[in-house]
Amino acid sequence: MTSVRQRGNGRWQATVRLPDGTRRSRTETTRSRAQRWAHYTEAAAEEGRMSPAWVAALCIREDLHRDRREHEELGQELGEWVEIRRDDLETLLRAAEAGQIRANETGR
């Protein structure tokens, strides 16, 4: 179960109730980012992959796919940074799947 609310400072807080009854919250700059985090956190919980690194990796993957679609629609080449980010993402996903990243190593 998810709730998203706007805080007094204009930022958006998403709260997710996990299957074990605990709650996870995160504050983002936009409502859509908060909703996206909540969606991926719920999906990760259902898959048994509750590492914050896994959730972050899923969000990054979605960003990369959106960038690719936008560039293709405009007929633009993807920048080198996208390729570097994609490599970083794959490394992060592999580490998260292998359990090599602990929750406090994600920076969030």
Rank of each mutant, 00 (worst) to 15 (best):
N104Q: 14
R7S: 07
L93Y: 00
D87C: 08
E77P: 02
G75H: 04
T29Q: 12
A45G: 04
E28S: 06
A14Q: 00
M50W: 02
C59Q: 07
E72D: 13
R36F: 03
T29M: 11
E28I: 05
A14P: 00
M1C: 08
R26D: 05
E90Y: 05
D20R: 02
W12I: 13
T27F: 04
E97H: 03
E28C: 13
E83K: 05
R5K: 12
Q100L: 13
A14W: 01
E46L: 13
D87Y: 04
L18F: 03
E90L: 15
R68C: 11
H71A: 15
R5N: 07
R11A: 08
E90P: 01
E97I: 07
D20A: 10
E70W: 04
E80H: 07
L93S: 03
L74Y: 03
A56I: 12
W54N: 01
R5G: 04
E47N: 05
Q35S: 10
T15F: 01
N104Y: 07
R24C: 06
L64V: 13
D88I: 10
L18P: 01
H71N: 10
C59M: 15
P19Q: 05
A96L: 09
G79F: 03
L18M: 14
G10T: 10
E73K: 08
L92A: 14
D20I: 14
H39A: 11
A38L: 09
Q76T: 09
A14E: 03
